[in-house]
């Protein structure tokens, strides 16, 4: 059995890794603890939303190594190859006894393969490994669109994955689709796909949603002088609209919640049997 050693009790010469989130907005979202991980590290790796944020990070540590160059020219290298290389390069420093901090935009564990994988590998080899949460694009979306996922429920899917599998959707809940801008890219090499691919997505969604149903196209801010971009359209029009890979599509519920009378009655009887006071009103 592999047991991860406690980071605080690890010997100083032993390598370790902390994956932290920088949040989405420069200057606004970085937690004090994530900043401390960055400042106390021997080596900092960075996979960030843009070069401006990377320059900001470089002001916090003298040895920031960007992971972006591993993409190559971005045309013919499968992204999974790049992600595996990220894990390898980070682990090589951990194995060399360095305190490594890997910095990702948003939350390091949300829509992110490498942070989870590097933590798994590090722990498997007996190194201390830790993830520090950050404010994610999902968090910003709730705030900017005024959505409470607890009200009707909320389902999240990576758009291509939704097409790849027969996925049951719940039209009573919000549906949030990530990476619609490159939906249908099975090659894992492209960073954008065209309207014909979005039409496939619409055809799949049309099984559960009317074509005139509202679709919200959302992009959060990354610089503090920006505001979020929120566009509304219909499901039918979605293929005709240019959607960047930074944007997220939200479908509000298409039908109302239906009371499950049988279960509610069963709960009432339980309350009566246990002498629980009835709900006021």
């Amino acid at each position: 059995m592999n047991t991860a050693p406690n980071e605080s009790t690890a010997a100083p010469s032993r390598g370790s890794i902390a994956c932290v989130g920088l949040g989405m907005v420069l200057g606004s979202h970085l937690s004090p603890l994530a900043r401390s991980h960055i400042e106390q590290a021997d080596v900092v790796f960075a996979a960030l939303s843009d070069g401006v944020v990377e320059i900001w990070l470089e002001r916090m540590h003298s040895d920031v190594r960007s992971l972006q160059s591993y993409y190559g020219d971005g045309t013919d290298k499968p992204r999974i190859t790049t992600y595996r290389e990220w894990v390898d390069v980070m682990m090589s420093e951990v194995r060399a006894g360095k305190r490594v901090c890997a910095v990702f935009y948003g939350h390091p564990g949300v829509f992110a393969w490498s942070p989870h994988e590097v933590i798994r590998v590090a722990r498997e080899e007996g190194y201390a490994a830790h993830m520090e949460p950050g404010i994610s694009a999902e968090d910003c979306l709730y705030a900017d669109l005024g959505i409470d996922p607890g009200r009707t429920g909320c389902q999240h899917y990576e758009a291509t994955q939704l097409l790849f599998y027969k996925t049951p959707l719940n039209p009573q809940a919000y549906l949030v689709l990530w990476q619609v801008g490159l939906v249908g890219d099975l090659s894992m090499k492209r960073f954008a796909t065209g309207p014909e691919y979005r039409q496939v997505l619409v055809d799949v969604l049309a099984r559960d949603y009317p074509l005139d149903h509202e679709a919200i196209i959302y992009r959060g801010a990354t610089l503090p002088v920006q505001q979020p971009r929120i566009r509304t359209t219909t499901l039918r029009e979605l293929p005709k609209i240019d959607i960047s890979s930074e944007e997220t599509v939200v479908l509000p519920p298409a039908s109302t919640l239906i009371s499950n009378d049988e279960v509610v009655e069963r709960l009432r009887k339980l309350d009566q049997a246990l002498d629980v006071p009835a709900t006021a009103g």
Binding site: M24, A47, S49, D50, G51, Q68, S69, Y71, G72, D73, G74, P78, R79, I80, Y83, F104, Y105, G106, F111, A112, W113, S114, P115, A137, E158, T160, Q161, F164, Y165, W178, Q179, G181, L182, L186, M188, F191, T222, S244, S245, E246
Partner: peptide, 18 residues
């Protein structure tokens, strides 16, 4: 616009579909 230096959010970190 450079994928190399400015990969769009979510592209850089998302695992491939199984």
């Amino acid at each position: 616009g450079s994928v190399n230096h400015n990969p769009p959010p979510f592209n850089t970190q998302t695992p491939p579909p199984p």
